[in-house]
Design a protein around this nucleic acid. Structure first.
Length: 576
DNA sequence: GCCGTTTTCGGCCCGACTGTTTTCAGTCG
């Protein structure tokens, strides 16, 4: 797969051209091409072979030639020329808040500042204040920016950002004169990690509301505070800080502002272009024909006036959402059960009964208890003997509790030698089997594929748990051939899991979309190790929606009889 | 550099905030 490397080269070309003060539109062309290549589902080498590179929006004659140059020589001459002119550490400086390409270029030409360390030294020595366009305030801001950069891990997991956002939203909502407040930005789009938190509100007194916002006890620093916009830093529970922005917008513009600040940037560019094509103008205040607003109070109006179905926030990524017709995506109300949960029998923190009652309180009609299998020693995995007793225990609780049905299940390890942790005759006694890889994730692709495919082909395996094995920000995904994994799942009828834990979100959105396109079944499961973790379902639903998953491809939207029928058919088809 | 029922030139999204060079450029989203 050449795409990630090619995209990276074009991004670097764009950065370096900006330092040189190149035509910004030319720079943007490289960025657009990089993004387009990153989102491609086929390798650029395959497209080049078929002479179809130019069909990709954003790739023209020059970039087509540069991709071919890369495919033949392994590099791009323009890139080589540019990196020879600047130290390799220079682009890193762009990550410092307050520094853009112009200032970085100036710092380098005036003071030879090439790294964050150089920048810090230049500020502390006072040298920076002698450069034109730099003053004392700028120096202070940059020092603060460096501190922010070093203390905050760059992005925050969805589930860590959401509680912070909800708390601040509730606080601002209580301020006098604030009538409407919503979370926007990447958090609303359900992105797996969040850069900063965006809040929008309607308020009688804009400057007063912003002033109160910047004085919140949660604010560890104030980045900006004007009449309509404020920006603060808030400490995160696990260390570091996250930026929170609040904007006050007019009531009649709320929908337009919510649309605008939900993004993504690429989605908005496309939407604005659509407005221009119709002779209109779209900005955060509304959709305008001349000076007359023709939509703005509600998001739905804007999409409707532009002749589009309402695009759910999760799909606003310019990945084809304008061309796919009406959206029919899974919602929380479609979910009838959770099919991957743990109890104190292995490494969970709640009993079977506690988990069952919590699931019933969520309105579910079924719950699969899937504790760890015997090889997961650290997780207190169940020996065959303990498993048989556990099945009895689950059946006993199921008989005792009304209003929800318990499925006796297991999360069965897929062992390094590509066998499962229990023989088929044991698996046959269970209602539901999740098969997952927990060990030897660093094996080579061939062996990891052998393990994954063996699990998908086993007649008793219902679903492949957290298929990529990634831990967000902590561990990379396993080296798998996704085309083949998805093809095999479609062929065998085995489901693929969308693990909803915010630490995993696995499958990720783009793989969900590939799986949907291939006709696979999916489940959205929380992998809950406590009753509270059953609430992770929302993150999995957002990931499913980002992958364009309709409810009728999600197993745990089925009524229980249909789910049981699916299990029976799956076993029969696979020859059990 | 890309793009095209305004099609081979002339556009390319746009407004708020900030600091400083006091009238606007740079940065950000």
């Amino acid at each position: 797969m050449n795409n990630p490397r090619v995209a990276q080269l074009f991004d670097q070309i764009a950065d370096l051209m900006e330092f040189k003060g190149e035509n910004p539109f030319r720079v943007n062309s490289y960025r657009k091409a990089a993004r387009a290549i990153r989102d491609l589902r086929e390798d650029v080498a395959v497209l080049a072979e078929r002479n179809e590179l130019r069909k990709v929006p954003g790739i023209g004659e020059a970039i087509d030639a540069k991709i071919r140059e890369f495919l033949t020589t392994g590099q791009i001459a323009l890139h080589q020329e540019l990196i020879a002119q600047f130290p390799p550490t220079l682009p890193k400086l762009l990550e410092v808040p307050g520094l853009g390409p112009k200032k970085v270029a100036l710092l380098y030409s005036e003071l030879r500042v090439a790294s964050v360390e150089d920048l810090k030294a230049a500020i502390e020595s006072g040298a920076i204040e002698k450069i034109p366009k730099f003053g004392k305030k700028t120096a202070e801001k940059l020092l603060e920016g460096i501190r922010f950069l070093s203390e905050s891990s760059q992005r925050t997991p969805l589930a860590e950002a959401l509680p912070i956002a909800e708390t601040i939203r509730a606080t601002v909502a209580e301020l006098p004169g604030v009538s409407r407040i919503e979370i926007a930005g990447s958090l609303r789009r359900g992105c797996e990690t969040i850069g900063d938190i965006d809040l929008l509100c309607v308020a009688d007194d804009g400057p007063g509301t912003i002033a109160s916002f910047t004085r919140l006890p949660q604010a560890s620093a104030v980045r900006a505070g004007g009449d309509t916009k404020g920006s603060i830093l808030v400490a995160k529970p696990r260390g570091g800080e996250i930026q929170v922005d609040l904007r006050v917008v007019p009531r009649e513009s709320f929908g337009a502002a919510l649309q605008y600040f939900t993004g993504s940037k690429e989605h908005n560019v496309r939407l604005r272009q659509r407005a221009i094509d119709r002779g209109w103008r779209l900005n955060e205040y509304g959709l305008f024909e001349g000076d007359v607003a023709i939509a703005g109070a509600e998001e739905e109006e804007i999409y409707a006036r532009l002749g589009l179905p309402y695009v759910p926030p999760e799909c606003r990524e310019d990945r084809g959402e304008f061309d796919c017709g009406a959206f029919c995506f899974v919602t929380r109300d479609d979910i009838r059960g959770d099919l991957h949960t743990h109890t104190t029998a292995s490494d969970g923190r709640a009993s079977i009964e506690e988990m069952a009652l919590a699931a019933r309180a969520l309105g579910y009609s079924y719950l699969a208890i899937t504790d760890h299998s015997k090889s997961s020693v650290i997780a207190n995995g169940l020996s065959v003997e303990r498993l048989l007793q556990h099945i009895e225990d689950i059946r006993a609780v199921d008989a005792r509790i009304g209003g929800i049905t318990l499925l006796a299940g297991i999360e069965c390890d897929i062992l390094p030698d590509a066998t499962l942790d229990y023989p088929d005759e044991v698996l046959a006694r269970l209602d539901w089997v999740v098969a997952s890889i927990h060990t030897a994730q660093g094996q080579d692709r061939a062996q990891l594929m052998k393990r994954t495919i063996a699990a998908l082909e086993n007649p008793y395996v219902c679903v492949l748990g957290h298929p990529s094995g990634r831990l967000l920000g902590r561990r990379d995904a396993m080296d798998l051939d996704w085309d083949e994994v998805i093809r095999t799942a479609a062929r065998t009828g085995t489901a693929l899991e969308i693990n909803a834990s915010y630490k995993r979100l696995d499958l990720k959105d783009t793989h969900v979309r590939m799986a949907i396109d291939a006709g696979c079944w999916l489940t959205i499961d929380t992998d809950a190790h406590s009753t509270a973790e059953l609430g992770y379902m929302t993150y999995g639903i957002q990931t499913a929606r980002r992958g364009y998953a309709p409810p009728d491809r999600i197993l745990n939207t089925l009524p229980l009889p249909d789910l049981r029928a699916w299990i029976t058919q799956r076993r029969a088809r696979a020859g059990a």
